[in-house]
Nucleic acid binder design. Structure first.
Length: 484
DNA sequence: TGAAATGTTGGGGCG
DNA sequence: ACGCCCCAACATTTC
């Protein structure tokens, strides 16, 4: 009986899982393994929100493996040692995993693949995460893309090359070994759940796991994908897909999403016209991975090195805390930051607004924002997080120009005109009339007292939007003359 | 995937 | 009736 190990990582699903397919096709039995080794991902170890999601996604994966007569073997420790232990326990001679693209993980996986092959283990990696892997497209000068539109013009043509695969028919799972090695542990022993109950609302809002992903995808296709272009910018509408946490942990693949859209619309080859606006967003995710792979230092360094001499402000601990906790006194910003804290997610339009405030009005280095999002977002994804923050800070590829400073008042009035979103997350503003909901400080002191915001930051925000905007433009001018 | 300042136009009030 | 002014609405430019 030949045994193959599938090393699960950010691909916590059974369907459309190339490593699982390859293992099932090439051996009699398959052992499912997960290794907890956060230190190997330094400096971007999984954040608290990611760990919460991982815990539940792993539980769901284990349950569906058990329903098929197997189980998820969980180990903790050095990945290489854990793999060696699992190979010895199971007598496996081959090893399959799906690729990740974070710089630290690429380096680790490369070492592991070499040492495994030296030991005679048949080690293979596969693509489960992307439509177009970063090295498969290049400009005519054979360079990596730095602008989204030409990247996607090229990549979109290749996005349909691989169809998603079903759970392999021939899959025979191995139950957990009877004599577990010293690295083996239970899911609970990984300690992924937070010690403080900040995650109280998460279970009512999210259903991690492959089944939850399929349910969310089905709802999105039924309810929102056609109206996506119009509704996606309004944070009080459920007009976005909310698939991002599933994509980040791999309970769902972009191939599956494209295929589901295609099946529903039953059109010819190419993208469904109705879903075009949404598919373009998947394209941005591909672009972020392209950039992360070709410019791996950008997780901690400006892509546009001209910004290395930019005069970022020295963060004030109180102000940074107020931004994190949603206490700046600016309604749309506070609503977004509180949505993030309470739900583990933030609407994309609002992400841009809070990011602009931090990097432009406050002029704090984008790393401060990237770190906070990394810890609190259930959909934290190193490629998206890095490029998103560099984009809004103006330091990235195809970035928002330095002079593009979002005005949270105008953004609020445009995209949340009735203030539903702001009131949902900032209850202090419940009685502020629509007309002033995005700038309650413009009310007279009497009006402020009447709706209960006198003496709060909403009567006097911690940040002067107009003055800080002027200061930001001045600071950005200081690096304007420098070469790229 | 902006905002604000500046420029232009045209309708209507009014002497 | 006519010209003048005001200003809203829209367009263009600049940061």
């Amino acid at each position: 009986m030949s045994v193959a190990i599938v090393w699960f990582r950010r691909d916590l699903r059974l369907a459309d899982n190339p490593a699982l397919c390859a293992a099932a096709a090439s051996s009699d039995q398959v052992l499912a393994l997960y290794i907890h080794a956060p230190g190997e991902e330094t400096p971007w170890q999984p954040g608290a929100a990611t760990r919460w999601w991982l815990h539940h996604a792993l539980a769901a994966l284990d349950a569906s493996l058990r329903a098929r007569g197997g189980a998820l073997l969980i180990k903790r420790g050095d990945s290489s040692e854990c793999l060696r232990e699992a190979l010895a326990e199971s007598g496996a001679t081959s090893l399959h995993w799906n690729r990740r693209y974070e710089p630290a993980v690429i380096a680790r996986d490369q070492r592991i693949k070499e040492t495994m092959r030296e030991r005679g283990v048949d080690a293979h990696s596969h693509n489960a995460l992307l439509l177009v892997e970063p090295w498969t497209v290049a400009t005519q000068q054979d360079a990596p893309y730095r602008v989204f539109t030409p990247f996607w013009r090229n990549a979109a043509q290749r996005a349909h090359q691989h169809l998603p695969s079903a759970v392999p028919q021939s899959l025979r799972l191995l139950a957990a070994p009877s004599m577990p090695g010293r690295h083996t542990c239970t899911l609970d022993q990984l300690g992924l759940l937070p010690s403080i109950a900040w995650d109280a609302a998460f279970p009512t809002l999210w259903q991690p796991g492959e089944a939850g992903a399929q349910a969310r995808l089905a709802d999105f296709l039924d309810d929102s994908v056609d109206g996506y272009a119009a509704a996606r910018d309004q944070p009080d509408h459920a007009g976005t897909s909310r698939l991002s946490p599933y994509l980040a942990t791999g309970e769902l693949s972009p191939r599956q999403i494209l295929a589901a859209i295609h099946d529903r619309d039953a059109e010819g080859p190419g993208f469904s016209a109705r879903a075009q606006a949404y598919v373009r967003q998947l394209g941005w995710r591909e672009f972020c991975y392209h950039l992360l792979f070709h410019f791996p230092q950008t997780t901690v360094q400006n892509l546009n090195r001209r910004f290395d001499s930019f005069p970022w402000a020295d963060p004030d601990a109180t102000l940074l805390r107020a931004w994190q906790q949603g206490r700046t006194g600016i309604p749309l910003v506070d609503a977004g930051m509180r949505e993030l804290w309470h739900t583990g997610w933030m609407h994309n339009r609002v992400r841009m607004v809070v990011g602009s405030l931090l990097t432009k009005n406050l002029r704090y280095h984008w790393q401060h924002g990237a770190r906070w999002f990394w810890d609190t977002l259930l959909d934290a994804d190193l490629a998206n997080n890095t490029q998103g923050w560099q984009w809004i800070a103006g330091t990235g590829a195809d970035a928002a120009p330095y002079f593009r400073v979002f005005n949270p008042v105008l953004q609020g009035e445009r995209f949340d005109p009735s203030g539903h979103y702001v009131r949902r997350h900032v209850p202090e503003l419940a009685r502020v009339p629509d007309r002033y909901i995005h700038q309650p400080w413009s009310m007279s002191p009497i009006e402020q007292a009447e709706c209960g915001i006198a003496g709060t930051p909403y009567a006097r925000p911690l940040i002067d939007l107009a003055a800080s905007r002027d200061a930001a433009l001045l600071a950005y001018q200081s690096i304007r003359q420098l070469p790229d």
